[in-house]
Design a protein around this nucleic acid. Structure first.
Lengths: 291, 291
DNA sequence: TTTCTAAATCGGTTTTATCGATTGATTATA
DNA sequence: TATAATCAATCGATAAAACCGATTTAGAAA
């Protein structure tokens, strides 16, 4: 049993397709096939069912995968630890962010990189679900998003701040003098909203449902900068957390009245995984600069 | 980084002597020396101090050893788990049953679990169609039901026993002295029958049709225990396989006369899917105790 | 100094991981 | 229903690497 074989196995498990897994691993299909077979021989039990040309995990494969992953993780944690020993002169940080929290990351990024210029960053924007999936697959070190309904036991959560849900509108609009606005008022306005995958959209849809209101959504779009551009025309309005348009000129956020109309920004990371020094340092700078 | 190298490293760390470590690992000193060097190259940091001809651990080596050991442990935990799986000290078994064959499963379950108490069971009752659907979706390991008209190529079938279709009636009834009963006689009696989804009901409906008889069904019900309760009042009769009321007091089964009035109990599982050891052992006990 | 010992290094051998091509089988399609 | 496309397994060949014995290097002991 070698880490190489465990890595191959997990990729095959993930894709359930030897050909694709092999190409993702930059090896030939025959090599993957042979290495899996060799692993199975050593373990004395098949890890995959071969049903025709399709493969599925066996019970053994399913159970073993957990340990294979942990074994790999421990080894790479050890590697990471040694890199950290080099006093943050090397290392990569992968951070997932929901778009709404963009400015929180960029601000910290600017501060951090002037202090530790050699650290590499990968900033991934995506929906909460996408980011959580990537976190679970060890593709991200930490994610920054709003609270989820279901908290999971293998995650570590850190609350950052709360931000009200708000109607976002252009400065041209007559609405701009209002201090708050109700869902009922909003339901009369033409709305352009983030697409269904965005947690903000899901959050606000539920709120409308509860109030038996039907919002007038004429546009759904999965790119926030484009959405904001449309809002700036004054022809549509949208609903976002207030923090989303921080640092945006020409846009106003009018908090929505009513209970539970705030969201909590959180840092989510995996428990029991070695936390990189660079990540720790970056998050420290980020939290310190939340105002 | 490979588990082999981690193992070498830990042994060298333990003995702090490459020559002895090599011989403990049944490899040559030169091989050990090379492999350690290769690991150090990959980690970009020395794990040992070479003070003259003596070696000591570096800080990096000391810190890294923890993770190296954990990585190896996780891999060997996984291996141990698979061994346990083979010894039936772990594992899950999911079995689908039609209600008529209930007692076959419960009897085997009691015997099996006293021998292998650590195996978890999921017993799913349902109609044949429901169970076959679940089997096809890998939600069940095996199902126990009566023969289907259409046998499918990707299933494995094992015949268990045959049981006659029978009129089920309460002990109070005058019918109880009859040895057999015809469909024609039955068609005059008030019947409470399992609902249309049950294969027994489908089976018996076809038999009535063929004989141009119209049964007097006054109740249809999709729960067999409730059905049996009604039968015990003596106000209705029903038609089931004889085996269904095995171990039921106060109920009599009068076999129905005529050809093809028996049903065959079968085990159905998926071909070309790894059969869990626990499933195999359970079925063995079940088949051995069929009377 | 000499001797001894242990790690590093060198050159050669064996093992094995890998590849491309092919096969056999299943699924998709026309 | 025949045909094409797809996928895992297998085969033979090759490149990579793990490994060994012999030798070198250098510190420690005599």
């Amino acid at each position: 049993m070698e880490l190489r074989q465990l890595k191959y196995f997990l990729k095959a498990k993930e894709l359930l397709n030897f050909t694709e897994a092999a190409s993702a691993l930059f090896i030939s299909q025959s090599t993957l096939s042979q290495q899996i077979k060799q692993l199975e021989d050593e373990l004395q039990v098949p890890l995959f069912n071969r049903i025709g040309k399709r493969i599925t995990l066996t019970e053994a494969g399913d159970l073993f995968a957990v340990y294979a992953q942990q074994s790999i993780n421990k080894a790479s944690d050890g590697l990471q630890l040694l890199k950290d020993l080099n006093k943050l002169e090397t290392g990569k940080v992968a951070i997932g962010v929901t778009y709404a929290l963009r400015h929180v990351v960029t601000k910290a990024l600017i501060l951090f990189s002037s202090e530790y210029p050699k650290i590499q960053f990968e900033i991934i924007f995506g929906t909460s679900q996408e980011l959580i999936h990537k976190l679970n697959h060890f593709q991200l070190d930490v994610i920054l998003t709003f609270e989820e309904i279901a908290s999971e036991a293998h995650f570590k959560y850190l609350e950052l701040f709360t931000s009200p849900m708000a109607l976002v509108t252009s400065s041209e609009t007559a609405l701009k003098n209002k201090k708050t606005i109700s869902l009922e008022e909003i339901s009369t306005l033409p709305l352009a909203m983030p697409a269904g995958g965005f947690s903000t959209t899901q959050f606000i849809s539920k709120a409308f449902e509860k109030s038996n209101l039907h919002p007038n959504v004429t546009i759904e779009i999965n790119d926030i900068p484009t959405l904001l551009e449309l809002i700036k025309t004054g022809k549509w309005h949208t609903i976002l957390t207030k923090t989303t348009i921080e640092n945006e000129n020409d846009l106003y956020a009018i908090p929505i009245s009513g209970k539970n109309m705030t969201r909590t920004a959180m840092l989510i990371s995996l428990k029991e995984v070695y936390e990189k020094k660079a990540v720790k340092a970056f998050l420290k700078i980020m939290v310190e600069n939340l105002k």
